[in-house]
Design a protein around this nucleic acid. Structure first.
Length: 277
DNA sequence: GATGTTGTTGAGTC
DNA sequence: TGACTCAACAACAT
């Protein structure tokens, strides 16, 4: 499931291949992956030049000439990539963008939870999900991070996953950062010291940067822009490690459900807050 | 055929 | 009104 580091890896990998290239043909295989009208979608893409590829939260955004923003949400199993060799669409391929001069951009999604939209700058700005996104964890200072959280009374894990509070964090990196910071997923920020919250921000930065450096995590079927796997899944300390031993203290890693999400934690290194049960 | 999986939204509660 | 929690939904692999 592509979170911030995976989408970042895809964006930077794609950029070197597709920036400056012209979209010659839009091949739509399943049009229900599109948000909005198909005819307008096609018209907005045809013959546009890809100026830039970037990430905001978990969104992959291609800035096209005119200007138009081609926005992808990859959800659990989405992929956007450029096959090195000639590749035919498979049953999970939903769109192919043929570039002038050869090479195709493939949009694939096994579970079809993802979507793609072609928006004008005005539409993008009016889109409530986009407009409501919280700040990027790698772009804010510790003081801002602490001030976002310190008065909150929801469980910290829920808040980390809330894209309106802070953008780009999913289940993997929330669990890893909480473990590194020694904070239980059920802890309530208003009862955590400012120092510890600042520490969480540091751990979050650390784990996100390390994951970007490793090319993301290929826990299920994530692949980067060239179709190769990342390696950060080998560095997971708690995510997916239920019943394994904690690398710091040897205790058995447990799980707890927080707002419907499985959270992995070490009961010794991440002490349960007094109020939680 | 039941279960697990996740990001997001909307309904419901305090 | 805002903060919070939870169920529901999408569709597939196991």
């Amino acid at each position: 499931m592509p979170e911030l580091p995976e989408v970042e890896t895809i964006a930077s990998g794609l950029a070197s291949f597709v920036c400056g290239r012209k979209i010659q043909e839009v091949r739509l295989i399943s049009s229900h992956m599109i948000i909005g009208d198909e005819i307008i979608f096609r018209k907005r893409l045809k013959s546009r030049i890809i100026r830039n590829v970037r990430r905001r939260a978990k969104l992959l955004i291609m800035d096209l000439s005119d200007p138009v923003h081609l926005v992808f949400h990859l959800k659990m199993t989405g992929k956007v990539w450029v096959p090195g060799e000639r590749t035919d669409p498979n049953k999970h391929t939903h769109m192919v963008l043929a570039l002038k001069g050869g090479q195709d951009i493939f949009f694939e999604d096994q579970r079809k939870f993802g979507y793609v939209a072609a928006m004008t700058p005005e539409e993008l700005g009016r889109w409530s999900f986009y407009a409501g996104l919280g700040p990027e964890p790698l772009q804010i200072e510790s003081e801002e991070f602490v001030s976002i959280f310190k008065h909150r009374k929801a469980r910290i894990k829920s808040l980390l996953l809330d894209q309106k509070v802070i953008a780009g964090i999913g289940n993997i990196y929330a669990d890893e950062a909480l473990y590194l910071a020694g904070i239980h997923p059920c802890s309530v920020p208003s009862e955590i010291s400012a120092d510890k919250l600042a520490g969480l921000h540091n751990c979050l930065r650390e784990v996100l940067l390390a994951a970007i450096k490793a090319g993301g995590s290929s826990f299920r079927n994530y692949r980067n822009a060239l179709g190769s796997a990342g390696s950060f899944q080998e560095s997971f300390l708690v995510y997916g490690k239920k019943d394994h031993s904690c690398q710091q203290c040897g205790c058995v890693i447990e799980t707890v459900k927080v707002s419907g999400r499985t959270s992995c934690f070490c009961p010794h290194c991440q002490e349960e807050p007094p109020a939680a049960k």
